[in-house]
């Protein structure tokens, strides 16, 4: 009887072992966060209640003390992008006369975060006279040109997360290297802002891969067309097409860019060895082959 026990699958060890995948680890992490978050929230609520009961009388006069007129003496602006203080002052209408205690921190934060280029802003007071503004900016991966109702050209930038924003303060040179986006329709939200474009993280990954693996080829890319790519990677006909200065059309499947770029490099090497310059298009979207077409189909090969 005793050895029989060894033989059933139920006797195989089923310990709660290490989480083997990212997904599993993230799930555990979220659960831990959730539990501890709830606990903390409960503690804070109880603590706050006790505190308010205990100190209710004495705290109000102290607040009064602080709220006496106090101008902003210093503004510290921290960013990871290209915005600067001049822009900030203009944006939030700050002068040296502004009373620090009258500043609505939440309003400034909202104003800043309504700027497309700013992903996240935090505003805090460091009494007596310092205002600290810290922002995280989108970094652009593509640019676009569109026209407004009056037909004026508007230059827009698109960030990795798909946010469409008017680039502020970018040096022209930095933007010149960005390819244009094509084949997408900008749709506007109710408040007039442009809704984020889906799938830009995938496109960014492609551009990133190309920029790192073959910078000289990447520098010839002019337009990224998402005509066939709605952001849904699992769609069987999802394709990203690229126009470059040298090759009319490059077609990628939105997955496994490393391999596709590697193949592209091989093909270009092969074609260069052949001294052909008239490639019309290269389609790398097939699993095990790439389709290359030439302008002159006969070509100089013997």
């Amino acid at each position: 009887m005793s050895n029989r026990k060894q033989l059933d699958w139920r006797d195989l060890p089923q310990g709660n072992r290490k989480k083997t995948t990212k997904v599993a680890r993230r799930r555990r992490w979220l659960r831990v966060c959730k539990t501890s978050g709830l606990t903390l929230l409960l503690c804070a609520l109880v603590g706050g209640f006790v505190y308010s009961l205990y100190f209710a009388g004495s705290s109000i006069p102290q607040m009064d003390d602080l709220s006496r007129h106090q101008p902003v003496r210093q503004v510290t602006f921290i960013t990871d992008g290209v915005l600067d203080e001049t822009w900030l002052f203009r944006k939030i209408g700050l002068t040296s006369q502004t009373d620090i205690s009258s500043i609505d921190i939440q309003a400034i934060k909202n104003t800043l975060e309504s700027v497309g280029q700013i992903k996240e802003a935090s505003v805090s007071r460091n009494l007596p006279g310092e205002l600290i503004v810290s922002v995280r900016e989108c970094s652009p991966v593509l640019r676009a040109v569109t026209a407004d109702d009056k037909g004026r050209r508007i230059r827009l930038l698109i960030a990795r997360d798909g946010t469409v924003f008017e680039g502020i303060n970018y040096p022209a040179k930095a933007l010149r290297s960005l390819p244009y986006i094509g084949g997408v329709r900008f749709s506007t939200a109710e408040d007039g802002s442009i809704l984020p474009i889906k799938g830009m993280d995938v496109v960014a990954e492609l551009l990133e891969t190309a920029r790192i693996r073959m910078p000289e080829i990447y520098s010839t890319w002019t337009v990224v067309s998402c005509d066939r790519f709605s952001g849904d990677v699992s769609k069987p006909d999802a394709l990203i097409k690229i126009k470059s200065k040298l090759i009319e059309e490059l077609t990628f499947k939105p997955e496994n860019f490393d391999l596709q770029i590697e193949r592209l490099a091989e093909i270009i090497q092969f074609v260069q060895a052949e001294h052909r310059t008239d490639i019309l298009s290269i389609d790398l979207s097939y699993a095990d082959q790439a389709v290359v077409s030439y302008a002159d189909p006969r070509g100089p090969r013997s």
Binding site: Q14, R17, K18, T20, T21, A24, R27
Partner: peptide, 11 residues
């Protein structure tokens, strides 16, 4: 079993 346990759940 390892696949399932690796997620932190049991069979």
């Amino acid at each position: 079993l390892h696949i399932i346990n690796g997620f932190g759940i049991k069979v």
